[in-house]
Simulated assay, not measured.
Amino acid sequence: MTSTSRAGRPKASSRETLAEAACELFLERGYDATSVADITQRAGVSRSSFFNYFSSKSDVLWSGLDARIDDVGAALDVLERNADASSVRAVLVDALRGFAPDPLALALRNRTAMGLDEELTRDTALRLARLASIVAAAASASGVAVIRADILGASHAAAVLSSLRVWAEQGAGYSAPETVLSDALQNLDDLRWR
C-alpha cells in the first residue's frame, strides 16, 4: 500500500515531483533566484516534505550521486585488503550503471542557463574530495603507501566526475555513463595500484 504525504501525493513520487519542480524553476529563474518555498509551491507539497527528501536546495541536484558515492564507500569497505585497481574500478563503473538522466545531469548540461556555474564548481569539488578520500582509504587498506593512495583516490574520483559531466553534456542518448567512465579509466592504466 502506498502511503501519502499531507499534500495527497504518493510518497514515492514526491521526491521526483520536487526535483522536477526545482529543475523547471532553475531553468526559468536561475538557481540563486529560486527558493525552497518556490520549489515546494510549484511541486504542491509542504516545506517539511521538501526537507524529508532533501537537506538543501543544492541537495536536489546531488542526492542521487551522493547515494551512489555512499554505495561505493560501502562496497570498497568490504574489499578491505583485497582492493586492487581492477576491483575498485569495477565498483566505480557499477556505481554509474543505470544512472538515468536526473537533476544533476540536467544541471550539468544546462549549467549556464540555470545559473549554476559557481554552485556546480564548488559542489563538484566537495564530491571529488569525498570520493577521492573513499578510494584513497581503500588503497591504503590494501597496503598502498599514503601518497600513492591519495594520488589513486584523486585520479579515480576525477575520472568518475569528469565522466558524468561529459555524459551529461553529450546527452543521455549518446552512451551510458558507465561506458564513458570505463573509457576514462583506461587513461589511468599507467597509474599502478602498487
Rank of each mutant, 00 (worst) to 15 (best):
L152P: 02
A43C: 09
R97E: 14
V93D: 01
D94V: 06
S182E: 15
N52T: 07
V72P: 03
T2W: 08
D94W: 07
L128D: 13
C23Y: 00
L188I: 07
I39W: 02
T124H: 12
S86L: 10
R68N: 08
T34C: 02
L104S: 03
I134F: 06
L152R: 01
V91N: 01
A159R: 01
D84R: 07
G143H: 09
N82L: 14
T179S: 13
T179K: 13
L188G: 05
G44T: 09
L104Y: 02
L106F: 07
L61Q: 02
E24N: 09
L27H: 11
P101R: 14
Y174V: 14
A168R: 01
D150A: 12
L116E: 02
G73S: 14
L92A: 04
I69L: 10
E20D: 14
A43V: 06
R15A: 13
S63I: 05
S163C: 07
P177H: 09
A113G: 05
R130L: 10
A105I: 04
L106D: 08
V93F: 06
Q41D: 14
D102Y: 07
S140G: 12
R127V: 00
V45W: 00
D66H: 11
I39C: 08
A37V: 14
A168V: 00
R111K: 11
G8Q: 13
Q186H: 12
Y31T: 00
E24P: 00
R130W: 06
G98Y: 08
W62S: 04
V135T: 05
V166C: 08
I39S: 04
Y53F: 15
E28V: 11
N110G: 03
D94I: 04
R89K: 06
L152W: 00
G8D: 11
Q186Y: 08
E118Q: 06
L108A: 05
L65R: 02
W62E: 04
G44C: 09
M1E: 10
E24G: 08
A125H: 10
L120V: 04
R81F: 12
T112G: 03
